[in-house]
Design a protein around this nucleic acid. Structure first.
Lengths: 135, 135
DNA sequence: ATAAGGGTTATAGTAACTATAAGGTCAAGG
DNA sequence: CCTTGACCTTATAGTTACTATAACCCTTAT
């Protein structure tokens, strides 16, 4: 089926994940231990390739490695309901929305700060003052 | 002027920053070394109080402790132009906007994923499939 | 006197990597 | 054949901004 014929560097090029990070994922058990060449080099198959892409894509959506570990194990149990997966996505959506809310508030506040700097010396700078006070 | 009359716990209550974090800030030089009572307890003045509020507020705006260290040292040199502070705020605003962009993209993508879950079993789960593939 | 609720220090752990050191392997060119 | 350079290996330490733990000291009330 899948031949184990890519070195870690090749896998890195194909997935955009650095070798050192791939080894790290193996170490924490996100990736299975790679088979080795005679000289001890790690060798990877297309299955590994897909798994890494899955990880990268999930990371890009803001899932933690812990989340991804769960998603991967869910993905491996093909017969079970996908409610768990859906729940994880929903939960992540919640988190992203909450962060969006905070960031939007930050943006407003920074805009306000930036607008109120009159360009004088620090003694008169409203920014420091504003940041020191409750408001 | 300012009396040094608050314990670390009182300061913590007033600022919403935990004692352990306050000690940490002192250790990394964000706060000056506190004066001590005879028995070795840290004692804080209103100046410290304001400095901590400044830190907390800046943190809430997304500044890193490194940024805050710079802001504080800028703020300490009262005679200088506040252009440096303003630039930092501008830079931070940029960063916040960039994060907002990323998060909005994430939100869209997660919404799309969530919508495509039909509630079957994992084998047929579009979410897993989508996460596995480039698209 | 003692117990509860502070305070003190030092050390280790967290997430998700990144950086460094010190060495082994492999293919190409002189 | 030898060397050079790019790649691979491992182990260890550093990063950010804390949090958790242990083991102990101080203060106050009962």
């Amino acid at each position: 089926m899948h031949k184990n014929n890519h070195t870690i560097g090749q896998l890195a090029d194909r997935t955009g994940i650095k070798p050192v990070t791939i080894r790290y994922y193996e170490k924490i058990g996100l990736l299975p231990e790679a088979t080795r060449s005679e000289s001890g080099y790690r060798l990877y198959s297309d299955t590994d390739h897909f798994r890494l892409l899955f990880i990268r894509r999930s990371r890009a959506l803001g899932f933690s490695l812990g989340d991804i570990r769960e998603l991967l194990s869910l993905a491996d149990s093909q017969q079970e309901s996908c409610a768990g997966v859906d729940a994880k996505v929903e939960q992540q959506l919640e988190q992203v929305r909450s962060r969006l809310k905070d960031l939007r508030a930050m943006e407003q506040e920074l805009k306000r700060l930036s607008a109120c700097c009159a360009g004088g010396v620090i003694m008169d700078c409203r920014i420091i003052e504003t940041l020191s006070c409750e408001a």
